[in-house]
Amino acid sequence: MTPRELIVCRDVSLGYEGQCVLSHLDLTIREGDYLCVVGDNGSGKSTLIRGLLGLLPPLSGEICRSKELMEGAVGYLPQQTRAQRDFPATVYEVVLSGCLNGRKNRFFYTAAQKSAAMMNLGKLGVLELKDQCYRDLSGGQQQRVLLARALCAASRLLILDEPITGLDPAAAQDLYKTLRYLNEKEGMAIVMVTHDLKTALGSARTVLHIGRSGVFCGTTAEYLSSPQGRRFQEAQS
C-alpha cells in the first residue's frame, strides 16, 4: 500500500452466510477522493459499505486498510432509524458520542475530546443548537449533527449511506456543499451511497456503479459516457 491509499480492495467478494452479493470487486480509496456509489436497490451498495467499515469480513479476496483507519479514523453516517428520530438527547451529547473510540478503554471524556466536539459543531454550523433536543430538529439539522459526530470519529475518511434520504431539496443542497467543503478544504476522503445521481455527480470525482450486469468504476465523465451511466441517467430523468 502506498501512503496515500486508505482502503484497497483486491478481488473482494462480499455476502451473507456464504451467499455472494457482490463479487470480484477491485477498488482503491485514496486521500482526498470523492467517490459516489450508485446502483439499483439490492445490488449490494450497503453490503459494500459494511465491508469497507470492516463490519463484514469478505468471503474472498482482501480488504487492506491504512494504519490510520485501523486506529479508527473513519467517520460513518448511517441511515437514520425510526427510534432515533424521537430520541431524547441534546445535540452536544450526540456529537460527543462520536469521540468514543472502542479501542481505548476510557470511562469518561477528556477535555480534548470535548473541545473537538465543540469545534465540529462549529464547523457544521450547529453550535447554537448545542443544548437543543435532537428530536426537535429538522431533518437537515439532524443530518448535520450526525455529520459533526462522524467528524469527531474521522480524520481521513467519511462514509455516508444515503445521507439525503428524507431531506428537502434545499437541505440536500446544503449537505452537498458541506461535503464538498470538507473534501476540498480539509482533504477528507468521502465515500457516499446515493440514489440522487444528478446532484451527486456534480461534486463527486469518481463513480462506482454496482449493477446486476457488472461493476463500473471510473471518473464522472467516463461514467456518463458509459452504457451503464447512460441507462441510469435515462431512468432518472
Binding site: 463490519l55 460513518y76 473510540n101 472502542g102 470519529a153
Partner: peptide, 14 residues
C-alpha cells in the same frame, strides 16, 4: 448512550 443511540455508528467506531 452511544450503543442506545446508534448501534451501527458505534460498531463502525470499534
Amino acid at each position: 448512550f452511544a450503543v442506545t443511540f446508534d448501534e451501527s455508528f458505534s460498531r463502525a467506531t470499534g
